[in-house]
Every structure is written in C-alpha cells, then in structure tokens.
C-alpha cells in the first residue's frame, strides 16, 4: 500500500520534512518503497483541497496521507478527515507501527508530548514543524487538480500586507518584554535596545492582556513563533505559553530581577536585575563600543 504526501511545493522545507516522515512511516509499515508526493493545483479553498485529498484516498486506498503541520496543512487535512470521517493526528512527531499504530504528537504548543493510538482506515497525519529532518530536495510532486466541494469558500482578497520594517518572524534579534517591564511607557527601554540592534520588539501574553502592547507583538503559543539568532527576554517569567513561541531561538538571554524565575532554566545567558536598570546600561554600552 502506498503513502501519499501533500506538499506545498517541491522545495518547501516543511513539506520535505513531511516527505521524510512519510518515508520512515512507509519503511516501518512495509508500504511501497517510495511515497507519492503531490501538490494541489488551483486557487486555495480549504474545503475543496480537503475534498481533493479525500478523493485521492477513495481512488487509491493509501495506507496514509502525510502533510506538513502548517496552518494550511492542518486546515486541509481537517477538511479531508471530516469528509472521510477518519481520525486525524495533527502536529505529529513520531510514528510507531502496530495494530493500531501509535503516534506521538505535540500538546501545549510543544511543552508536552502525547502518545495516542490512531485507529484510522487511512492514517491521516500532519507533521509538527522541525520534528524531523527534511528529505533532500529533488522529488517531482504529482500535480493533482483541485476537486469541487459545495461548501468551499475561497479568499476574495488579501489585505494588510506588511509595510516594511523588521517583522518578528524574520528578525535576527528579538527584544521581548513581560510583566516585569511594568507599563506601556516602560517599553521605551525595550524599544531602544531593539532599535540599536536592528531587531524587533516582542512581548508576553501578560503584556497584551494588560493592553500595554498590541497582540501583533505577542510571542507565544497563541501569538507569533520566532526564531532569531538571539532572543532577549526582559522581565518575562518563562510560562509554558511564552516558551512555546520562542523555543526556536538559537540563543536566549534572560534579564529578570527574580533569580529563581523559570525563564533561567531555558536561557543560555542570564542577567539578574531590574530591566529598567539593566537595559539602559546595555544600550549605553553598545553606543560606547560603537564610539557614537
């Protein structure tokens, strides 16, 4: 039996991770050696794309369909699972064959893992981003025309394209403030340091809930996921909600007046002190080093 892989395109990193996952699932279950990669041709319409996957399942009876655990991947596979009335394991990190097989999937934005039995006629799985290494590029996906679904909605326009400036997702430095910053005005010291480093300003959920910063600045499980070279967490305690958004950072510097704060367990570097004393000193030191 075959394994199908829904890819965004032939070079997409997360799709290649899904392909790698599919290969190891195929080997573990004794399916045909090489999974069949495919893309869907046609404007994006979630229910239609879900119907496309469902039609492929009906026509080819694969053992499994694998997709990347992106917003779109999860959305399309949810539609396919609903149409087929099959279970779906979203954001999966591992697969263990068996009858039924066991999947490992992420909970709490990655702060917890779940093992679950997946009782599907066809195994529908999305792969958590960066849970497995990517397969080498070079596969040529089959192009499948989108099916029709009576309830399908498609986007009518795109609005609010970003207006330049460093975005949180792309910034190589993120300076983020938490409850310890104290107020909306208190973010001036955070903005100053971010500006000096050409970085973006982030914040914790406590800050957006207090109305100090807009939600677009929030880093966390329900905010933006960031992956900078260094993440500077200022006055942030290190709740699981927040760490789910910044665990992609290469290095983490925590500045907190509470030396026992759980953020230090996730940090590479730490400074124990009040952000309003430490951040201006760092900014002044940068100016001094640069001779300005």
């Amino acid at each position: 039996m075959s394994v199908l892989v829904l890819m965004r395109d032939a070079g997409d990193e997360l799709s290649l991770q899904a392909l790698a996952f599919a290969r190891s699932l195929g080997q573990a279950t004794g399916a045909d050696a090489e999974p069949t990669a495919f893309t869907i041709d046609g404007p994006y319409a979630p229910a239609s794309w879900g119907q496309t996957v469902a039609d492929l399942v009906t026509a080819r009876s694969p053992r499994a369909v694998i997709a990347p655990g992106t917003e779109r991947g999860n959305e399309v596979m949810a539609h396919a699972a609903a149409i087929l009335d099959e279970p779906l394991s979203a954001n999966t990190t591992a697969f263990t064959p068996g009858d039924p097989p066991t999947v490992t999937r992420v909970r709490w934005g990655g702060s917890l893992l779940e093992q679950a039995l997946l009782r599907g006629g066809t195994l529908l799985i999305t792969v958590a981003p960066h849970a497995v290494g990517a397969a080498p590029a070079g596969v040529t996906p089959e192009v499948v025309p989108a099916s029709h679904h009576a309830l399908a909605l498609a986007p009518t326009e795109r609005v609010g394209a970003s207006s330049g400036g460093v975005t949180l997702e792309e910034a190589s430095v993120v300076v983020s403030g938490g409850r310890g910053v104290g107020s909306a005005e208190g973010f001036a010291v955070v903005e100053e340091l971010a500006g000096l480093l050409g970085g973006a300003v982030g914040c914790s959920r406590a800050v957006t809930s207090a109305g100090w910063r807009p939600h677009t600045d929030q880093v966390g499980q329900t905010g933006t996921k960031v992956a900078p070279e260094i993440y500077i967490a200022c006055g942030i305690s290190g709740a699981t909600q927040h760490m789910a958004g910044c665990k992609g950072a290469k290095k983490l510097l925590a500045i907190n007046s509470d030396g026992e704060a759980s953020i230090f367990a996730h940090a590479d570097y730490g400074v124990i002190g009040d952000v309003h004393a430490v951040l201006p000193a760092i900014s002044a030191e940068i100016r001094k080093v640069r001779g300005a």
Partner: peptide, 22 residues
Amino acid sequence: LEMTRLELPPDSGKQVKILGRG
C-alpha cells in the same frame, strides 16, 4: 485518536551562564 500517555519533552540540558547582576 486515543491518548494513552503524556510525557515531558526531553530536557534542553541548558545550563544558564549568569553574566552578572544589575
């Protein structure tokens, strides 16, 4: 989709280097 067990992800094993106070 039957959850059988939860587990904590492996510890990052990070050891924080304290650069100083204040």
